Amino acid sequence: MTVALLANPAARAGGGTGPAERAAERLRAHGMEVAIVSGGSAAESTKLLRAAIELDATAVVVAGGDGTLHLAMQEVAGTGIPLGIIPVGTGNDLAAVAGLRELDVETATDTIAAGVTKDIDLARVTRADGSTELFGTVLASGFDSRVNDRANAMRWPRGGSRYNIAILIEFLTLHGVPFSLDLELADGTREQLSGDLVMATVGNGRTYGGGIPICPDADPADGLLDVTLVRPAGRLHLLRLLPRVYRGTHTTVDEVSTRRVRSIRLDAAGVTAYADGDPIGALPLTIDVVPRALRLFTRDSP
């Protein structure tokens, strides 16, 4: 196996480089050829990774979080080239799909060396200008996208607690936003919804923000996307809802509704959506599923 190992360009002088080098050494010990790829920016890293794939890479490994994985999946989706994960990020939600979560270079590299893979779906975002981009975990719009924005701007703390603090701060200005939604449901029928929402979330995977199960029943290999909608209520009432969100039991609350869809169009003025933890575009956006687009090294059975 010839591996292109992408190290998070934002962590070259910090948490990403050390784990990448350790992972490379361990993969080489398993008899693999490994080249570390890390540009000075996301664009440069993309260019270098693309060149490595075109040259001879038969697998791609990412030492980083969901944002760096997001970059890599744009290049490997639909190619059959398997993607491995060394979880070094803040959230690591796609790593959880692969049976990984915390940084454990030995477990992560041994998972890759074992060669067990499974094919999972990706979600495709189409912007108003016709441009498209894929994501693997969750798209957030509304309250949770503002939480992402605040969490990304914070320098401390690291890890999932950053999102917890950002959630509490954003609660101080919590408000509903007028949304219009056009959904293609799992059975092929269409549904149109409009009204104020606190948030509209589209999940290919179950979790975001380092393990928050916002779409608790999502299956990234079922050919569908899960939608979680939250209607406005008093701040205190929604604050009491938070513990249920962390347990994944919020979908039975009156203010929360869910749908399982093939595609959805989201529209709301002044709302920027986040996917895989990074901004992906201003609404309106259309999101549809791309079945079995990504081959993932996994600790689980395929």
Score class of each variant (00 low, 15 high):
97 V>C: 05
243 P>C: 08
102 E>K: 11
253 V>H: 14
171 F>G: 14
116 V>F: 04
65 G>T: 05
60 V>R: 01
257 S>K: 05
215 C>K: 05
273 A>N: 02
96 A>Y: 09
222 D>K: 11
44 E>R: 07
161 S>R: 12
65 G>N: 04
57 A>L: 04
152 N>W: 09
216 P>E: 00
201 T>A: 04
252 T>R: 15
74 Q>V: 12
281 G>W: 03
195 G>R: 11
248 G>K: 03
152 N>F: 07
292 R>L: 03
64 G>V: 05
84 G>T: 08
277 G>L: 10
205 G>K: 00
236 L>K: 12
174 L>H: 02
244 R>D: 08
22 R>D: 12
111 T>V: 09
74 Q>S: 06
58 T>Q: 14
149 D>S: 14
302 P>C: 02
255 E>G: 09
130 G>D: 05
289 V>S: 09
231 R>H: 13
15 G>F: 08
133 E>W: 00
110 D>Y: 03
222 D>V: 13
109 T>Q: 06
232 P>D: 10
1 M>G: 14
135 F>N: 03
214 I>R: 04
123 A>W: 01
120 I>M: 12
81 I>P: 00
212 I>V: 15
96 A>P: 00
181 L>M: 10
132 T>Q: 11
107 T>E: 15
176 G>N: 11
126 T>Y: 02
54 E>M: 05
292 R>N: 02
198 V>R: 04
95 A>E: 11
203 G>E: 07
115 G>K: 09
211 G>R: 06
121 D>C: 09
146 R>W: 08
291 P>A: 07
216 P>I: 01
